[in-house]
Nucleic acid binder design. Structure first.
Lengths: 211, 211
DNA sequence: TAGATTGTTAATCGATTAACAATC
DNA sequence: TAGATTGTTAATCGATTAACAATC
């Protein structure tokens, strides 16, 4: 296996997609698959698929292809999905609540364990078994009950302050849904979901399609 | 200006980010900016910024830089944000409701005009001024009241069927939040927001950080 | 005018694709 | 064994960066 720190983000971002397709094959009780067939299903070239996988090890067998179940598990393990992640949601409007209900059911390994908001109307409400707490108490609470991932579902103006506080509370990663660029402490991983950027990109391709 | 069909997706996906930063500068009443300063704010190199912008035309001025307000508007126009987009949401759980409240306030140009669900408990509810309608009636309704963008917030198993129906109703683009790959009719633009993929990527970097 | 900074060409770098020997 | 398909090296392609003449 190569030094994983040298593997490009493009490769990493393809892995969840491979895994998703493998899951579907697994559910259809398909045992083996060739890079060529996987190419048809994913839209990536067979060559690229083999290159990508060989960054992490030789998971296939000449003349046979890849074992679906085994490759599915290997990719899960590469992605770190055999571990458990505790998560805290900050900002419990519709989006925060959607995530609270969503995240846990897609991947058993991701558990929302605490939720925070400043709005007195939301504090005390129970979402998916978790009571929304006062944001004021977040620092104390998270220092006593640490989480791995902080999820920012606040508005733009609060996002940086929340991010800084989450970093101080020792999160390992931040999943940011606020439509702004935030800065995090060294060694904290940042993953942005900029919905407005995504919608803008869609608008571009709509207004330029057929040209 | 180059043939826009030859401009890579990577370039297009940087445009919303440039625009976001320019908006902040505009709000601070900053009039001009050089590619070098923009580089510091965006994290992209000055060279790349100039290259990107020159795909669409020479918006700068030697010795001066770029006029913030004008560049902001130009990028908006390139992205097609000077038009209006009517949108329909299919699947009105937390996520669908979050989008209904979200999309409209980020960009005045994106208007949610109809919402559909199969759940009788949701049908009739009013979200942000829009009454949720029965999914059964979607086809008839959208043929009489067409939209530009269909937003899929259903679960995985319904996503493809919904996508096909939206295509039949003449949408120009689909914004897909269901965690699955869907196929759309030719000339319909597809933009995926795979939240589970995003979270998996975050997990990878967390479990490989510090190595 | 002198200084600054763009627009654009050329050089570099990295990612994707092609090809094929290794081998199951 | 013969056929299939990987793992891996080499070739290609495209995107990013560097450099600098043009020019405000």
């Amino acid at each position: 296996m190569k030094d994983t720190s040298k593997i490009s983000t493009a490769v990493i971002r393809r892995l969840p997609r491979y895994r998703r397709i493998l899951k579907e094959l697994k559910d259809k009780d398909i045992e083996r698959i060739s890079s060529n067939e996987l190419s048809k299903l994913t839209g990536f070239t067979a060559s690229q698929i083999r290159q990508d996988l060989n960054n992490f090890g030789g998971f296939g067998q000449q003349g046979y292809g890849y074992n679906v179940d085994s490759l599915y598990n290997q990719i899960g393990s590469i992605l770190g999905l055999d571990k458990e992640y505790k998560m805290a949601i900050v900002g419990c409007g519709n989006l925060g609540q959607a995530i609270a209900n969503y995240a846990s059911y897609y991947r058993a390994g991701f558990k929302v364990v605490s939720m925070f908001d400043v709005n007195p109307k939301l504090i005390g409400i129970i979402i998916n078994g978790i009571e929304i707490m006062d944001y004021e108490d977040m620092e104390d609470y998270l220092k006593a009950n640490p989480v791995d991932i902080g999820i920012i579902c606040t508005n733009k103006s609060s996002a940086q302050e929340v991010a800084t506080k989450l970093c101080d509370c020792g999160v390992k990663g931040i999943w940011n849904f606020a439509p702004t660029d935030i800065v995090v402490k060294e060694n904290v991983v940042l993953e942005n979901v900029h919905l407005s950027d995504s919608l803008n990109t869609l608008a571009y391709y709509i207004s330029n399609s057929g040209k």
